[in-house]
Design a binder for these strands. Structure first.
Lengths: 116, 116
DNA sequence: GTTGGATATATCCAATTTGGATAAAAGTAA
DNA sequence: TTACTTTTATCCAAATTGGATATATCCAAC
């Protein structure tokens, strides 16, 4: 599936979108992000380790997230915490709007309940 | 990205979902479906011919869509028209609900405007 | 009516994206 | 100490998609 760059940084891989959405909650480390994604999607989506760490590396390079110091009280040096950048939040908002548009289409077609 | 079968027939490939949503509008032939997908997504998503016809073949085998007679007035014998089956509509509704859930999460996080 | 370009379906191969196996290091608990 | 879990990381295979190509038919222009 191809995409057009109406908004900057589109198309967005599904994994990247879900990671961004998880981080809109606050800072999380890698496996913590995967947990939030599962909760956000009621278990429908689970990121494998390959997708997870590869995505975080790319997203850091692309300036969508940045590594931050662990929160106070967290002493596990293995964990790397990430935070949304301003650019990451903008990209997330753009993609979420596309999701919203799809949902609105589904409502118009009475696939979902709501205003036709 | 892996998925769990909370609802039957999950996970749903993105292409399959968009084709199902396009057909919730009524019957369409292959390229007509691709056009509706572009309109539904404001040009963000365009299906290549490989994805389009491969998906339609698989979806027919899986009983999500079925081929139907062309509408009256359409005399082009090349076109093959498709219609959602009851099972296809159920699968579409389940996946649209997952999209809706994601959008609601985005609203809760103030990524999208609306009720927090 | 025949020529040229657009439309429509179909298949194949390469590129993209993801999943899972594996590894290494550090935490935790018995 | 030992055994098990957690965490990050990388690699390779599997899954999914995109685009080139091919064939046939339609439509418009000449």
């Amino acid at each position: 599936m191809s995409s057009r760059n109406t908004n900057a940084a589109a198309p967005l891989k599904a994994a990247v979108f879900h990671i961004l959405l998880a981080l809109s909650d606050g800072d999380h480390h890698g496996l913590g992000i995967a947990d939030v994604v599962e909760k956000n999607t009621d278990g429908a989506i689970s990121l494998g380790p390959g997708t997870l760490y590869r995505s975080l590396k790319e997203m850091t390079q692309d300036g969508l997230v940045r590594e931050v110091a662990p929160p106070h009280g967290d002493e596990d040096p293995r964990r790397k915490f990430y935070r949304l950048t301003r650019a990451g939040r903008a990209v997330l908002r753009a993609e979420a709007s596309r999701y919203e548009r799809i949902v609105n289409v589904a409502r118009k077609r009475a696939v979902l309940p709501g205003a036709q």
